[in-house]
């Protein structure tokens, strides 16, 4: 199959459908998305297609993006908060090549955002969709290796062992040690893996105005948190869930004190620098 970039503009339109996926694939994925939206937090299996990027590099998110995108959309792609990482740039280039949509780095301007491991700092609205790339969709995998059994556990609300896992962390270490993939209870029903976002981002899922779609390409699962859905991190009354604390620290570029900060250790190996993880938001603040 010819590579997209090498072909002439006219031939490309003959060789490819809009947004790369054929209609059958798009229809299937959209149906699965509808199902996921109808049953918040439930993992819907889907027929994951071969993508011109390697599995594990966001093919699940990409298939969701491609099945939803329209010519009028404005797309933003981020990787751990950054719009310019190689991975984000590759995905952007590819989607633009097969759709021709407008690309942006501004969260408020985008209609569709595909992301890996972060939720943007700026609040999103009902008119936007956030697509999250998911490496391991099963929140219970830590406590149960068998897929058949975790499915039954979800079906029966059999979550004692997940709670036991958290309990053991608390009695041995005084707190739950998970810093990413913190398990959440969606709509009071399913325990869900929110993808490897930091704890900082977890509260943003709760009662949000935006639709969140989660795609795992390798594991062939789609799940969703529709707008205004309750999403609660698993916590004990006497050991409440806490987000990362950046008390006393601020972004050295934009001065923000209320964002998730990346810690960079300087070349001397001692000095620590802090910068906003959400780079476009940081840029925006610097401009104003």
């Amino acid at each position: 199959m010819p590579i997209v970039e090498k072909s002439k503009k006219q031939t490309r339109q003959i060789l490819y459908n809009f947004a790369f996926l054929d209609d059958v694939a798009k229809r299937e994925i959209r149906r699965k998305i509808l199902k996921a939206v109808a049953v918040p937090g439930y993992q819907v299996p889907f027929g994951s297609r071969e993508m011109p990027i390697a599995r594990g590099w966001g093919t699940g998110g990409l298939q969701i993006t491609l099945s939803l995108i329209e010519p009028s959309d404005t797309l933003k792609v981020i990787d751990q908060g950054c719009d310019y990482s190689v991975n984000a740039v590759n995905i952007k280039k590819f989607v633009q090549a097969v759709t021709g949509v407008r690309i942006t780095t501004d969260t408020t301007e985008a209609t569709l955002i595909q992301t890996r491991h972060r939720i943007p700092e700026e609040p999103m609205t009902e008119d936007q969709i956030l697509v999250l790339q998911v490496p391991y969709p099963e929140a219970l995998r830590e406590v149960e290796p068998s897929e058949q059994k975790t499915r039954a556990m979800h079906a029966e609300g059999d979550y004692g062992r997940m709670w036991l896992f958290l309990y053991e962390d608390i009695i041995h270490y005084g707190e739950v040690r998970l810093s990413y993939r913190y398990p959440v209870l969606v709509n009071n029903k399913y325990i869900m893996d929110p993808s490897p976002i930091p704890r900082w981002d977890v509260p943003k899922l709760n009662m949000a105005r935006t639709l969140f779609l989660f795609g795992a390409g390798r594991e062939k699962r789609i799940y969703a948190v529709p707008p205004y859905t309750s999403v609660e991190p698993l916590q004990f009354e006497d050991h409440p869930f806490r987000v990362e604390s950046f008390a006393g620290k601020r972004c050295e570029r934009c001065g923000a004190e209320d964002t998730y900060l990346d810690e960079i250790i300087a070349e001397d190996g001692v000095t620590r620098h802090y910068y906003c993880s959400d780079t476009s938001f940081c840029d925006k603040r610097r401009r104003t």
Binding site: I170, F236, D238
Partner: peptide, 24 residues
């Protein structure tokens, strides 16, 4: 590989107990 207390706690957790102090 789960603590003795955790073993005893499992059914309480399954039954919706959500206070580590009370469970212990």
């Amino acid at each position: 590989d789960v603590s003795a207390g955790g073993n005893v706690a499992e059914k309480l957790l399954a039954a919706g107990w959500r206070n580590v102090g009370l469970i212990r």
